[in-house]
């Protein structure tokens, strides 16, 4: 359990620190020497071709995947096999999945209140009030009594975002949140994410939506074959990509 001393006022408030992180799936080297720091309030977008390890990277941050080498420190707690550390980190890190992963046998309201009741031990009434508040923030408060199967894809993903928000996390991770949506529903989800970003939450987002990156991101990271190839501010990144691999990737996705 590493506890670094509180940073001085002039030092950046680093929420996530990944140093020399390597991960293997069996013999396959999927993350290669990742060095990454994210400050509080930063919005980071990670892009790259499929198989580059970007999903694996953020899944390592809440221990859905284990890294074999290097260190990950989240909110001043080191991520090891220590179950207490993992629990503490998962309370502060929320995740929104590509496939939504809502619990189909529970209503929308129950989906949102389950974790606050069982993990943060919040009384039911208070949890429901919080849930209704966040449902309002994602603009679908009237769906509280419905089951996920009765909602459209865009609505389900917004419920998933609200579910993570109900835990009041410090960091939100997004794993390709709009890739499974029909085109007309992508905008409603992106709008919610932009509003969240503007309020100051720390975000790491794996996505192909470059418009979102331009609007909201402080930093864009390009990954290829397990390594961070390039990282820059959005304007610079899109206008002057420095590496050849970045240029190739951008030409492919920005073609249309």
């Amino acid at each position: 359990m590493a506890a670094t001393p509180a940073p001085a006022a002039t030092e950046p408030d680093v929420l996530i620190q990944m140093s020399g992180v390597n991960k293997w799936y069996g013999e396959f080297h999927v993350l290669r020497d990742i060095n990454l720091a994210v400050e509080r309030g930063e919005k980071v977008v990670i892009c790259g071709p499929s198989g580059s390890g970007k999903s694996t990277l953020i899944r390592c941050l809440n221990r859905l995947e284990e890294h074999q080498k290097g260190s990950i420190i989240v909110d001043k707690i080191e991520l090891t096999n220590d179950v207490k550390n993992i629990d503490a980190i998962r309370r502060e890190v929320g995740m929104v999945f590509q496939q939504f992963n809502l619990f189909p046998h529970l209503t929308v309201l129950e989906n949102l209140t389950l974790a606050p009741i069982w993990v943060r031990k919040i009384p039911k009434k208070e949890a429901e009030e919080t849930a209704m508040y966040f449902l309002g923030r994602v603009k679908i408060p009237e769906q509280a009594g419905k089951y996920p199967g009765q909602l459209s894809g865009g609505q389900q993903q917004r419920v998933a975002i609200a579910r993570s928000l109900c835990m009041k996390p410090k960091i939100l991770l997004f794993d390709e949140p709009t890739s499974a949506l029909d085109p007309e529903m992508i905008k409603e989800v992106l709008d919610v994410m932009i509003e969240l970003a503007r309020e100051g939450i720390t975000m790491i987002c794996v996505t192909h939506e470059m418009g979102f990156a331009r609007t909201v991101a402080n930093r864009v990271i390009f990954m290829d074959r397990g390594q961070i190839v390039e990282q820059n501010e959005p304007e610079e990144f899109f206008k002057n990509p420095k590496s050849d691999r970045t240029k190739l990737f951008l030409s492919q996705i920005l073609a249309h």
Binding site: R32, E39, E236, K242
Partner: peptide, 12 residues
């Protein structure tokens, strides 16, 4: 630096 603009010079 971990947060400054960065370009990898070679493939790992």
């Amino acid at each position: 630096s971990f947060t400054e603009p960065f370009v990898a010079t070679q493939e790992i």
